[in-house]
Every structure is written in C-alpha cells, then in structure tokens.
Design a protein around this nucleic acid. Structure first.
Lengths: 260, 260
DNA sequence: CTTCAGTATTCGTGATTGCCGAACAGTAAT
DNA sequence: ATTACTGTTCGGCAATCACGAATACTGAAG
C-alpha cells in the first residue's frame, strides 16, 4: 500500500489500457496522449510484443493480442465456483430458453463472468468481462445487498448521494435490505433496452456469497406469469447448487472466494 | 526486436504467469521459484495489486483478478470478425444442437476464441482462451492449411519432423494441401476423448482467412449421416457469413485481421 | 523524381529507480 | 516462549529505464 509502485509497470498498464480504449494505437499517438517520450513508448511496446501480449498490424498499429483472452479464460477456469456455476447456467438456459449469466462484484463494479444463451435467447451486447455500476441495475443492487456488511459500507461510502433519481442514502440502504430479504430482483430495461431480468443470489450453506445468476429476455415475453415461472426454476436450481458448493468448500474454503 | 526489453516488465509477466500456473501463490514461493529477492517480488505484487490486477486472499495468497477477464473480453469484442462470427455460432448451435466454437491461429498455437453450447451440447473442458498445438488436431491442421503460405512455412519450420506417428515433412505438407482442398476437417477424440468434430474455414471473398468454426459432439452420435448433415448446414451458414464479412471489410481491411 | 510531413526505430548519456540483502513484523504451531 | 515460517519495510548502490536527438521509413503532395 505505502510501497512505492514500480513506475515501468504503471506506465505499461497505462499504455495497455489506452490501446484498449482506442482499439489499437501507434507510437506517436500514445506518446502524445500519455506525455511520454516516443522512445519510451517504443521500448514498452516492443517488450510487450516480444512477450506476445501485443501485435503489430500492417499499418504499425499495436493491438492487444489474444494472450489476454487466454489469461482471462484461465483466471475464470481456475475458480472452482465458476466450475460449479457454469453447468448450472446451461441447465437454466435450456430449461427457460433464455440467456443466463453470472455476475459478481469486482473492484466496486458489477462484472459479468460468463453467459450462456438459451434457444430463444436474445442477443445481448454484453460480453464476458463486461463491467457496469453496482448501484444502477437490479442485479447490481442485489449483489450489493448480499455483500458482507463491511464491504458494502466501503462501497456505499464511495457513492454520491442523493443518487440520480434523488434517492437518499437511508432510502437506498432500505432498498438493499428489502432486496436481500426478498432473495430475488426483477428488472426491466436497466442495462439494455427492452430486456427484462430475473436475478437470484448464489450463497452456500455457510452463508458465503459468491454472486448472482441473471436470466435475461425480451421484455415483451416476460409477463407476470413468465416472471414467476422463471423465478421458480431459478431458485430451485440454485438451491441445489448451494449444497454442491458447500461440499466442495470443505477442503478449501478460501480459494473458493471469487477474486475481486 | 533488437530493442533491449524492459526488465521490470519481463519479470512482471514471469510473476503473473507463474501465479496463473500455480493458481495463486505467495511472496516467498514466487521468490524461490523465480530466483528473485522477496522484496523484489513484493514490490511487483503490490503495484499489481494497487492497479487492481491482483488480489490477495485471507491467507495472503495472490491471485489474478477478474480485470484480466475484462481485458480478454474487450480484445475479443473489439475484433469485428468476432462480432460477425458470434451470432453465427449461435445459429449453428441451435440448428445442430451441438457445441460450436471458433478457433484461430495465435502465436503458433490454436486458440479457442469463443464457444456456444447447443441444447444437446456436450460439456467440453475447453474454455475461452484455451490453447493447444496446431499440428495435432484436425481443426488445428485445417487452420494451418489455410494460413498464408509465408506464415505456414514459418510455423512448419519450428516443428520437429518426423512427427509422433512418424509423419515426414513432405507427407505433412501433402496432408495439409489435401485438407485445404477439401474445405472441411473431420476428427475424433483428438483433443478431448470421445468427442467428434467437424470444422470448416472462415474465409472472406478476398480470400482472407480468419479461423475455423468447429462443431463438437459425442462420438457416438456422429454417425456418417449425422456428420454429413452437420457439414452441410455448416458450409451453408459459413458461406453466407463470408459475404457479410466482405461487406464489412470494405472500409477497414486491416483492422479486421485477427490479432495473433 | 524530390520534398515534405508524418510515421517508427535506434543510440548514447545521465539520473532515477528498481533491485537486493538485511532488518522488522506478524502468525501459527510446537 | 521459542521456532520457523510467512509478508513487509528500509537504505543504499548499480543497473537501467526514460529521455531527446539523430536516423530510417513510408506515403502523399508538389
């Protein structure tokens, strides 16, 4: 924390993140934007390229390579929670026909860890790794509501109250409490237009919270009946998962935690 | 290339990759394995942690964070080829009921860019970003066969001939040529046991090759008839895609290339 | 064909800083 | 309390990273 950060690494990530934002960039472009000497940028770029994390296209633009996809895939694969949740997503997708995904809190954001499309599934623009605010969507609020008290405080303290629709701090806390008691969150058109969602938390028998499973579909199809139907299969399936998680947790409680 | 690599960054990636292999590691562990001072490791770890790319669990083990998943997702999302291929995978998965994925050459490996499961889909252990050899699987060979001549030479030169089953260099080249002419590759049990595959290349009308679409299913179900059936829908669908790709390519030929 | 404006790249030098080793602190088990 | 591990901090020297100027390319414009 107090430890002086390694400058070269900080700069490297500045570069990587900038390249990502721009979807490819050249040396001069980066030098200008980041206020660094061209030669410095060049040094970074060529080491990254040698390492295989960057590629240079025909017009000398540098791009992130698929190595990052490999890293990302591995970090997901290694988490035992995901291994338990993934088959479940598929079951739910098959049974409901809708698109299903798994979301967790990560660094104060809502991160989409993985998704499976059902046969009738809508095509969302949300890809793996996508991030959004925790406090603007029902699924985000649900996650927020189930986080350990300490963590939730921390995150709430970073928020500016009142929120957009003039919701005060106290009101928001109340909303979260209610959501937690309900154990399910419904939403319409919050992240993507015309998309309705039903979300339930994933919690093991030791009350460790991992994230939420979200079923998403076209708002039109999600009548009151359908909503209820989806919620039922969802809670039923997830209840089964909770037991499995606990089993797996017996040997290694710690590593089961989702990396934030 | 001749440019001296930045040591700090090389070390950082050594650390990151080691952590990934071990699925979490501590300071001393890394110091021992990488022959570096504990303090050095600590410096790296804490900067990475500050940046949000590493997390430290209750027992002081460091893990890669979901930020890497976000990076990986973005690099995929940004590639316009993927945006065209992804919906196609879903169509094929729905029509055939099998699992479908998209593979490309990346740094001499066969990389799995994305997959979609059909209703009858088997559960493969292959996650996004997974890598394997190019020359051991039918889908890999198919990709190899369709790469630009120059690139293929390069990769073949790195191989040790004769290969395991005593295939000589000339024989292998011949096999690839045949595969390319066929325009389809069939496989059984090569990457995963009891899994049969059918693969076709994705090529636009300017003969730019992007990767291959692979349908995978239980070997038992893939009778001669079923194989042929799958191949038909596959080639039909992919032919349609080729046109779309060309359309999109008109404005930006270069950035359409998959980053290797 | 030359000029020009824009790239990427190389090189050498100086000051910064990343690295080390040793000292410190915290933890769990003996 | 001792032991044997962890992770963390600190100070100082040398290596090395960042810089800016010089060079090499490239392509467009005259």
């Amino acid at each position: 924390m107090a430890q002086a950060p390694i400058r070269a690494i900080d700069r490297m990530f500045d570069i990587i993140e900038t390249i990502l934002m721009h979807d490819g960039a050249g040396v001069s472009e980066l030098a200008a934007e980041l206020n660094m000497a061209k030669s410095t940028i060049h040094g970074h770029l060529s080491t990254l390229k040698n390492r295989g994390y960057l590629v240079q296209d025909d017009s000398n633009q540098y791009h992130l390579s698929l190595n990052f996809l490999t890293l990302g895939g591995s970090v997901r694969q290694k988490r035992t929670v995901w291994n338990n949740v993934e088959p479940l997503l598929r079951e739910i997708a098959q049974e409901t026909g809708e698109s299903v995904n798994f979301v967790v809190e990560s660094q104060g954001d809502l991160a989409f860890v993985g998704l499976v499309h059902g046969t009738d599934g809508i095509r969302t623009k949300v890809d793996v790794g996508f991030r959004t605010n925790l406090h603007t969507s029902p699924e985000g609020k649900l996650v927020l509501a189930h986080l350990p008290e300490a963590r939730r405080r921390e995150l709430l303290d970073e928020l500016e109250f009142p929120l957009g629709n003039s919701v005060g701090r106290a009101a928001f806390r109340a909303e979260l409490d209610e959501l937690r008691d309900e154990g399910v969150a419904y939403g319409t058109e919050t992240i993507v237009k015309n998309v309705a969602t039903v979300s339930v938390p994933v919690i093991d028998n030791k009350d460790v919270f991992y994230g939420a499973i979200v079923v998403a579909g076209p708002a039109l199809r999600f009548t009151q009946d359908h909503l209820e139907e989806v919620r039922e299969t969802l809670t039923y399936k997830v209840a089964k998962l909770n037991i499995d998680l606990t089993f797996e947790t017996q040997e290694s409680t710690v590593t089961n935690q989702i990396a934030t």
